[in-house]
Amino acid sequence: MNTIAWVGRKVGGALVVLWLVASAIFIAIRLIPGDPAEAIMGGPGSQASAQALAAARAEYALDQPIITQYFLYLGKLLTFDFGTSYSLKQPVTQVMGEVLPNTLWLSLMALLIAWLLALCFSALAMRAGRIGTFVGNLLEIIAAAVPHFWLGAVLIMLFSSALGWLPAVDNGTGRGLVLPILTLALPLAGFLTQLMRDSLTEAMSSQFALAARARGESRLKLFWRHGLRHAALPALSLTGWAFSSLLSGAVVVEAIFARPGLGRSLLSAVLARDIPMVTGIALFSALVYIVVMAISEGIERMINPAGDPR
């Protein structure tokens, strides 16, 4: 498949997925029993004013037939109009524009750190003896199983309360970013290490590794030239998933460390049952997932144009 066709297929697939997500959300809103306008404005408990309800009806064209509503809704999405947050009285797009960079930055840094940690540990694991392997194995499993909300608390207790090295809340110096990033990165690193180590071991004991050794390559060069790529490949193909789990984690981490971001906005929107805000963020994170997925697949294609070697 040539590159243009590949990009075309990717974009097409992404649009289909986004369309399906949007449709699912549209259907879900209509499935809530009672007045959709009321649901949009926070449910029956929110005591929305008649004026606000009328505004919502107008905005979502609720007096129109449902098919018309649907296409109007899709049309708005195409112009990046995700509606108006009723709890913040601001367009959803604007709110997201303000908080999104924080979350993306946090997640990207965490992804990077997790990758570095995983690479280092997998490389170290190649030299480990039996006991080392066992301990490493256990540590990975524990790291991968630790929930963010607890890890964050433990890190604060350790580095902030007990040792006083790092602030628990961002004070603008950047040092406040260390703990949130670690909280997000450690579980992912544990998970990635398990993956990378498996494929690294497989690669280093493969026929092509033997052939490379027979050409006179040292173990170290074998690792650099061959091992790394093979270790990175399966982990790379999971980048989309990893990023998605980081976004999940960010909701919790932003709550613990009191950082403004997508997750915090989402949480307060959920508590206020601010449907436009919540659906907007969900749609947007789906978009982010798809973009990250496409990028990681692009990189994968560069490393391995023939597709899955196994």
Binding site: S206, Q207, F208, L210, A211, A212, R213, A214, R215, G216, E217, S218, R225, H226, R229, H230, L233, I303, N304, A306, P309
Partner: peptide, 26 residues
């Protein structure tokens, strides 16, 4: 280290399965 000078230089090897014996990623 001394073996490395021999391998591929004085003595080399052709392995069984070409698909497995060449790194599929390079």
């Amino acid at each position: 280290r001394s073996w490395q000078k021999i391998r591929g230089n004085s003595v080399s090897m052709i392995l069984q399965d070409a698909l497995m014996a060449l790194d599929p990623l390079r």
